[in-house]
Nucleic acid binder design. Structure first.
Lengths: 341, 341
DNA sequence: CTGGAAATTGGGAGCGCTCCCATTATTAAT
DNA sequence: ATTAATAATGGGAGCGCTCCCAATTTCCAG
C-alpha cells in the first residue's frame, strides 16, 4: 500500500512505464494480454496514479470549484443552496471530477479565496453561484484569468459568460396570474433583495402581471425580504397593515416566515390571506399548510451547470452559452385554489 | 496573466528560481532589498505558483476532503450538515486549505469516491462525518491508507481514530432531566435511527435518566425517527396513542415535525404536550413555538475537526485524539418551563 | 517467404515546483 | 588586513506523471 508509482507497476508487470500509463488511461494500442497482466498488478497492489503528478503533466486537474460568494449566510438559511450543491456534487461524481467548495463570507475570505481559485494547477473550471450585485468582480477576475466558467443564475452583466438559469420573470408572473385568476384583489409580494437578479426579476414578474391585468401596483403591498425565514416574517409584518388577501413570496422559506407572521396575526390561511412561494423545496410540503409554489429544477440546475462547464473544459470552446430551465406552478393548499373554484 | 513560472519571475527580478521560491514561501535568508524586488514583480505580474507542481514537489496538497457518507439525503433535509460544512469551510479558509467535498449517496458513488479520496497527491487529510453504522468500512480504508483522518462524530469503532464529538448521552440526559424536573409524567422520545451512534446515545441518555429517577421506561413512548421533519412527524403520530405529556426529540428538525403532528392532533404546545429538541439550529427559534433544545456548537465542531486534522498533517503525529465539546440546555417556550414554575 | 504498413512498446523530455548542497558574498572577530 | 564564521544565492536532482517519437514487433498481401 506504500507509495507506488507507474514505474513500480511497470516493473512488476514486466512492461514499461508508458504501457502502464496507457492501461491506466484506457488508451488503445495495448495488447489484450498485456493489458490484463497490468490490470492484475494494479488490482493486487491497489495502485492509483498520483493526482498531482498527473495534473502537472497533463495540465488537467479533474477538479472544479464551486464558489458561493456573498451567500454564505444564506447557504445555511435557505435550503436552496444545499440542494444546488447536491446537484453539482452528484454531477461531478458522475463525470469523475472532484468538487472543491469555496464559501466566501467576509472580505478576508475573498482575499484568500480569489488567488486560490484562479491559481493554475488547482481547478479546471469554476461554477459561480451568482445573481448578487457584488459578484461581478469575481466573475470579471475569472474571465480575465481565462478560467472556464459557468454561472449558476443570471449574472448582472451577463454578456460573455455562460450561465444556467430559469425564467424568473415569467415564472413569477405565472404565480401572480394564478392569484389573479383566483379572484384575489389585494395581491402583495415579498421580494428578494434589490441587489440580486433573482429578487429583481421575480418582482418584475409580479409588477408586469398586475399591469397586464389592469391592476394598479401599490407600494404598500410590496415588501423586501432577504431569502430567510425571518426576513419573510418581518416583511409580512410590514405588509399586514395594507391588508393583502394574497401574497407572492419570492422563495419558499420566506413564504413560510410570512405564513408564520400571518398566523400570529390571527389570520387564516388561505381564507384570510393566500400564499404562493417559489422553489418547491421539500419544506414546501412540510409546513402545516401545504405551500403552492413555483417548482424550479434545482438538482437539474446543478447538473446542467456542471455539464456546461465540463463541455467548456474538454472542448476548449468558451463561446458563452445559456441554458434556461423550465419551471412549473405547483398548486397546493396555501393559495386557496380548491376553495375558490 | 499568461502562464508564468517561478523561472519567469526570477528572470524579471534578476534572481534565481530558488530565491523566488524562498520569497513566495516566506523563507528567511533573503536580503530585504531582494525580497522587495521579487515581491514587486510578483505583484505586477499577478503570479501564483502552480498548485500541482507545488504539490508534486512537496508532497503536500493543502487540500482536505470532507466526506459525507450515507448522509447525502440528510444533507439537505437536516440543516445540521450545511452548518457543519460551513464551520469546516471557514476553518479551511482560515488555515489556507482548500476544501474538497464528497457527497456519497449510492453504492456507485462510493466506488468512484473511495479511490479518489485515498489517491496520493490529492488530499492531505480527510474529515469523515460519521456515526452511521456503514461508515466503518470507509474509515477502515482510510486508516489502512495511512491518510490523516478526523471523524466528526463518534464512529462505531472508535479506537485508533481521532474524533470530535459531544457527550450525547449526558446532553440528552440533561434534556430529559429538565422535563422530569418540570413534573412531566409521561415523557416520550423520538430517537434517531438505531444504526447511528447519535441515535443510540441520545436514546440511552433518555433511558438512563428515567431509570435514575425511578421511572419506568415504556416502549410505547419511544419512537424511532430518521432526523427528518417528516420522520419526526410520523414518529409523533406513533407516540400519540400513548398520550405523552412531553417529548424529547433527538433533533430540532424532528421536534418541529413532531410539533406539527401534535398541533394537527389538536394538542396545545406546551400545555398538552411539551417538547425539547436537540441541536439549537436557527430553525429552533423560527417555529411558531420557540423550541427548548440542547445547543451543540456546530460551527465549533467543524473548526475543531479541521484543527485536529491539520495538526495531524503538519506534525505527522497520528496518535488518536478525541475532543468532546460542551453542550448546553437552552430553555424557551416549547418545554413549558415558564408556565410550570 | 518477403516487404511494407500498422500495431505495439520503450524511453526521453518536460510539466513547475521544492529541497539540498555547493558556491559566493557579507560580516565579525582577531 | 586576514580568517573564520555566517548569510545569501544559484543550480541540479527529482517529485510521478503524460506525451511524443523512435524502435520494435506483428500482421497481411503479394
Amino acid at each position: 500500500m506504500a507509495d507506488l508509482t507507474l514505474e513500480d507497476i511497470a516493473k512488476q508487470a514486466g512492461v514499461s512505464r508508458s504501457t502502464v500509463s496507457r492501461v491506466v488511461n484506457n488508451h488503445p494500442n495495448v495488447r489484450g494480454e498485456v493489458r490484463q497482466r497490468v490490470l492484475q498488478v494494479i488490482e493486487d497492489t491497489g495502485f492509483h496514479p498520483n493526482a498531482a503528478a498527473r495534473t502537472l503533466a497533463s495540465q488537467r486537474s479533474w477538479t472544479i470549484g464551486l464558489l458561493l460568494p456573498h451567500s454564505v449566510s444564506f447557504f445555511f438559511t435557505d435550503p436552496y443552496y444545499p440542494h444546488l450543491t447536491k446537484g453539482i456534487a452528484q454531477a461531478c461524481n458522475q463525470y469523475n471530477y472532484t468538487l472543491a467548495l469555496f464559501l466566501v463570507g467576509t472580505k478576508e475570505d475573498e482575499e484568500k479565496i480569489f488567488p486560490r481559485v484562479s491559481r493554475k494547477g488547482l481547478l479546471d473550471g469554476v461554477i459561480v453561484q451568482a445573481g448578487h450585485h457584488g459578484d461581478q468582480e469575481i466573475i470579471g477576475h475569472l474571465v480575465d484569468a481565462a478560467m472556464p466558467l459557468v454561472v449558476a443564475g443570471r449574472p448582472f452583466r451577463s454578456d460573455n459568460v455562460s450561465y444556467v438559469d430559469i425564467d424568473n420573470i415569467n415564472a413569477a408572473a405565472s404565480a401572480v396570474s394564478h392569484l389573479v385568476r383566483l379572484g384575489y384583489q389585494r395581491i402583495g409580494t415579498i421580494s428578494g433583495p434589490a441587489n440580486s437578479t433573482v429578487g429583481l426579476d421575480r418582482k418584475e414578474g409580479y409588477v408586469k402581471t398586475l399591469k397586464e391585468r389592469g391592476r394598479s401596483v401599490d407600494d404598500s403591498l410590496i415588501a423586501e425580504g432577504d431569502f430567510t425565514e425571518a426576513g419573510g416574517y418581518y416583511a409580512m409584518q410590514k405588509l399586514l397593515p395594507a391588508k393583502p388577501d394574497a401574497v407572492f413570496a419570492a422563495s419558499d422559506i420566506m413564504a413560510i416566515g410570512a405564513m408564520r407572521a400571518a398566523k400570529e396575526a390571527g389570520l387564516n390561511i388561505p381564507d384570510d390571506v393566500a400564499f404562493v412561494g417559489f422553489d418547491d423545496l421539500p419544506i414546501a410540503t412540510l409546513s402545516s399548510i401545504q405551500l403552492t409554489t413555483i417548482r424550479q429544477p434545482v438538482i437539474q440546475f446543478g447538473v446542467k451547470s456542471v455539464e456546461l462547464l465540463i463541455d467548456q473544459i474538454e472542448t476548449g470552446n468558451t463561446t458563452p452559452r445559456r441554458v434556461i430551465l423550465d419551471t412549473e406552478l405547483v398548486i397546493r393548499e396555501s393559495c386557496g385554489a380548491s376553495r375558490r373554484k
